[in-house]
Design a protein around this nucleic acid. Sequence first.
DNA 1: CGGGACTCCTGCCAGC
DNA 2: TGCTGGCAGGAGTCCC
Length: 297
Amino acid sequence: MPELPEVETVKRGLQPAMQNRRIEFVELRRADLRFPFPQGFAERLQGRRISTLTRRAKYILAHLDSGDVLIMHLGMSGRFTVFAPEGSSQNLGEFYYLQGADTAGNGAHDHVVITLDDGAKLVYTDPRRFGMMDLCPEGDLDRHRLLASIGIEPLGNELNAAYLHDALKGRKTPLKAALLDQRIIAGLGNIYVCEALHRSGLSPKRLAGTLSRNRKVDERLERLSSAIRSILNEAIEAGGSTLRDYASTDGNSGAFQQLFSVYDREDEDCPKPDCSGTVQRIVQSGRSTFYCTSCQR
DNA sequence: CGGGACTCCTGCCAGC
DNA sequence: TGCTGGCAGGAGTCCC
């Protein structure tokens, strides 16, 4: 599930449930996810008020009144569910399930249960356990080992053709791999890289540095940077409806899939109106790439 | 250093 | 029906 748009959607979904709430109790069902929980994890959270939630790359950050920041990453299969407090199903955020909180958190892969001061329970579920949680003082966030070398946010002003020109210059790695590199752009994953390359008509196999040959900024980098931005924004937009579906049903939203032009569409016709190509699947650094060999150069 | 392979873990699906 | 192998949206680590 989670690339930047999904993480942003989850953050927005959690915000109304968590903002300004005090953490009453934290139950860990195991000692680790991808990494061990830090020493005193539950104790440092309990009794603290959450001032706000933010996002950096694919990390959700909960800022606490103690000065600590709770860092959360969903990995490949991580998910949060908010269970409403008993008998208060009115005016709940879209992220709420409408069950009573006493039934929450009993699944086989429910690893963390956070009880808030209004009785709501926040349950972290992660079958593959590639997710992680950590605590870090707000002032040390930039130096946190997982955040220190993260690149620019693609939705901010820093992402533009000139940035890509410099960042990709001399790179001999395929463009696909460079865009997946979180040190260059934060938050892109396999799906949205495939989609952005298709929209901008660039081959995933092209060596990244070939777009920065001249001193002049290549107009293809302009296309790439605006494709990244528009794809992510559209996905976030769609995320809201995905989330509503999710809250009311089972997590599998049809609207989500319809967004993709090439991802998981091997052998289908290229959806670009002026292109008669077919979507191919190849493997790059061990992962699936979907692209049109006809219009992506 | 840059680049690529390997690794963690479980669930699911196609193919036999 | 049941097994097996391959694959999955992430990313740190190790090795050349």
